[in-house]
Design a binder for these strands. Structure first.
Lengths: 193, 193
DNA sequence: GCTTTTTCTTGATGCAGGTCAATGTCTCGA
DNA sequence: TCGAGACATTGACCTGCATCAAGAAAAAGC
C-alpha cells in the first residue's frame, strides 16, 4: 500500500524506517469507485491525496455548465484543491475518479504533525510544489502561444499514456479546445503519414 | 533596503533580529536601469530576486520572434526562472526591468545556507510557492475558459495598478491576446457607460 | 445478447479575434 | 526643440476554431 508513496518520497529526500512507520500512522488509505467524488466544489478540501492506483481528475464547472479539467492525477501523483486545503475556503474544483482508484489521504493536522516531527518533509513538499510550478508555467505558455493542433501534439508528447487512458473529450477539456477539433486534428495527422 | 523584504517574510513566519542580521549577509543588493536584463534565455539563473522598488517582467520569445510575458514583478514580489535556478539548466525566460529597479539577490549556495541555519525558511519559501501555485491555477483557468474581454476585465480587477503602470501591448502579451483587441475592448467598455 | 449510454466522427455555418496597414499621439534623448 | 522610435487607435479583411446537428461506433449495464 505504501510502497509507491515511499519510493516517491525517497526520490526527493532520505527517510528512515522509523520515519516510514510514523507516516503509516498518519495517512488514511481509501478506495474510490469510478465516478465517485473525492471532493465537490463548495466543500472544504480536508485532504491532499496521493494516488496509489487508478486515476483522478480535478475540474471546475463554469456558469454555462461547461467542465474544464485542471489536472489529471494517475498513480504516483498528488492532488487536492490547494487553495481550499491551505486556507479552508470553499473548494472551487471538483475531484472525482475516472477509474477505480486507491489513494492515501493526509489531512492538515497530520501534515502539520509530519512537518513538526520530521522537518525534512517541509523540503519534500516544497520540492513537489516547485516541480508542479515549473510544469504549470510551461502549460500556461503553451496555452497562450500555441494553436489547437500544437497543444494536442504537445499533449501527445508529454503525456502519451494519459491520451490513451482518457476519453478524448476530456483531453480536449484539459487543453481548452473542443472534442470536434481534436477529431479533425487526428484525421489530418493520419493523412499526413 | 531590507525593510520590505523583512515585512514580507514576517507576514509568513516569525524571525528574530539575529535571523535578520544573518539574512543581510546573504542577499546581494543590486540596481537595474530600465530595459536592463537580469537574466537572458540561454544563461543559467543564478539568483532568485526580491523586488524592493521598481518593476521587472519575465517573458519568453517564440520561433516567430513574438514575446510572451509570463510574469510581472513589482515591489514586494519574487522573480526568477524557477526551472533554471533549481536545475541549473539553461533559462528559457528573459527577465528585464520595465522601470529603474532595486532588487535583492539570493543565489543557490546562499539559499542552502539559509535553509540550513534557519530551517523556518524552508517553510517561508514553501508558502510563497504555494501561493503562486494557486494564483497560476486561476490564471490558467481564466486563459482556458474566458473570452478576450473577460480576460482583460479580470486583469483590470486583479491588478488595477499594473494596468496603469505597464504599456497596453504588454498587458496584451501577458493575457495572450493582441494589442488591437484590447484597444477595441476599451472602446466598447467606454461606450457602455 | 440486447439496450442504453458514452464516445467519436463528419459536414455546414458563424464569429471572435487575429492580421495588415494607415494614421495619430506621446515621449524622451541628443 | 526637434526628430525618431514607441505606443495606441481604427478600419477592412481573413481564418481557426466553435457551434450545431446528425450518425456511426464502441463500451457499459442489465
Amino acid at each position: 500500500m505504501f510502497d509507491l508513496l515511499f519510493e516517491n518520497i525517497e526520490r526527493k529526500i532520505e527517510i528512515t524506517e522509523e520515519d516510514k512507520a510514523f507516516c503509516k500512522t498518519l495517512f488514511i488509505p481509501k478506495k474510490l469507485r469510478k465516478k465517485q467524488y473525492l471532493l465537490q466544489a463548495g466543500d472544504i478540501a480536508e485532504y491532499v491525496a496521493f494516488v496509489n492506483k487508478g486515476l483522478l481528475r480535478s475540474y471546475s464547472v463554469d456558469e454555462k455548465g461547461e467542465e474544464h479539467i485542471i489536472q489529471f492525477a494517475p498513480e504516483d501523483w498528488w492532488i487536492t484543491d490547494m487553495n481550499s486545503f491551505l486556507t479552508c475556503e470553499e473548494a472551487i474544483y471538483n475531484i472525482d475518479a475516472l477509474e477505480d482508484t486507491e489513494i492515501l489521504l493526509l489531512d492538515k493536522p497530520s501534515q502539520d504533525k509530519l512537518f513538526e516531527h520530521i522537518p525534512k518533509f517541509e523540503r519534500y513538499f516544497r520540492i513537489l510544489i516547485q516541480a508542479s510550478f515549473v510544469a504549470m508555467h510551461k502549460r500556461l505558455l503553451s496555452t497562450i502561444t500555441n494553436t489547437a493542433e500544437e497543444k494536442y501534439m504537445r499533449m501527445l508528447k508529454t503525456y502519451p499514456d494519459l491520451v490513451q487512458r482518457v476519453p478524448q473529450h476530456m483531453i480536449a477539456s484539459f487543453l481548452g479546445i473542443k472534442p470536434e477539433t481534436i477529431s479533425r486534428i487526428r484525421k489530418k495527422q493520419a493523412s499526413n503519414s
